[in-house]
Design a protein around this nucleic acid. Structure first.
Lengths: 196, 196
DNA sequence: TTGTCAAGCGGAACAACGTTCCGTATCTTT
DNA sequence: AAAGATACGGAACGTTGTTCCGCTTGACAA
């Protein structure tokens, strides 16, 4: 889990030099297109931006999901690592949970269309969904358990449900000035609180 | 606004007999396919089920959104009308709001893919979104204002945000046994409550 | 330096979708 | 019964994701 083998195949070692260069170029182009047109931008647009053929994309990233994972891996990693840190530095577990969820929401809301694609019923995005779950669910579980253990929240809500709910609330937030996903999420987290 | 001119053109009077018959057949076929395959089922499937060509669908329903609206109009109407009734019959406005939202959630969750399509960035679904907003937002506003007036909920949340949030929470609920949209929505409504 | 060849590349080609178009069939009216 | 308006079917178009294959090119041995 240190280097890279999930989304992009061997990323540093081995293989031809031009291939490695192209992979780099593709990641940059994809990141740039994702910002400009959202995560659901046509593959052809990314290929054009990178100056390569579509075949090259599929050589490096067997599916769109793998490309998206590769582009955002660092940020997801950072989010995952922030969990334990917040738990250590915050006043209460519930506060840590709230702050961590804010991180998660900020991440989703600033990546146009990512939350939506996470919930797409297109099966080719299953691996994207799985990646998020695999990486972030344990972190969320830890925070949730801590808060539950401290008696701050009502028990019984699974971390999976919370994450799905939060992710859902972020869908489309970037296109709609009249909708503040952060506020809704805050309300949800508030509703989680133990009446006392 | 009494009869029908929004989604389906003139629905009862005028025009040829076979056209009227086809429109009926189409609504039945669409309803049936929506149940079986979800709201995003291919237009060709609906045409096949109805035994007509795709052109016929577009003659009657200029866009997919219009077809969806026509299929669900009755239920949306019922939901809208339930608002004031609940307000009159419930113990408190907040209770009425909660029950009304439950109705809305039940409606969305049982229509495969409807919540998702409501949030699709495909512009051809804008009119579907608008229809829901036009018809249900005033009802939600009334309930929300009543609850706010009674001091039961913290003020400042727009009805639009609430509806969007609830709609979002319902996305994908039908495919995922591990996710209970109703529970999340209940948590959200709970979070809305005035702290004291 | 040059020859060889697997690795990699570009983009044509395919399938699935929403939507449009128009020649043909059918209903309605006179 | 004939004429005209109306509606129908489905081929055709544009846009997607994805696959495939002939050609190019980098790497390495001689």
């Amino acid at each position: 889990m240190n280097d890279g083998d999930k989304g992009a195949g061997p990323s540093a070692r081995s293989k031809r030099a031009d291939a490695r260069r192209n992979q780099e170029t593709l990641l940059d182009a994809a990141a740039s297109v994702f910002v400009a047109s959202g995560v659901e931008a046509p593959v052809r647009d990314i290929a054009a931006k990178a100056g390569v053929g579509v075949g090259t994309i599929y050589r490096h990233f067997p599916t769109r999901a793998d490309l998206i994972i590769a582009v955002y891996r660092h940020q997801v990693e950072a989010c995952a690592e922030a969990g334990p840190a917040l738990l250590a530095s915050s006043a209460t577990p519930h506060a840590a949970l709230g702050q961590w969820i804010n991180l998660f929401v900020d991440f989703l809301v600033t990546k146009h269309g990512l939350a939506a694609v996470l919930r797409s019923d297109n099966t080719s995005f299953d691996t994207l969904h799985s990646y998020f779950i695999d990486r972030l669910l344990p972190v969320c579980t830890q925070l949730l358990d801590a808060a539950a253990g401290a008696g701050e929240i009502r028990p019984g809500l699974k971390a999976y449900e919370l994450m799905r709910g939060v992710g859902n609330l972020c869908i489309g937030a970037e296109h709609d000035p009249g909708y503040d996903a952060r506020r809704l999420v805050a309300l949800l987290v508030e509703g989680l609180r133990q009446p006392r």
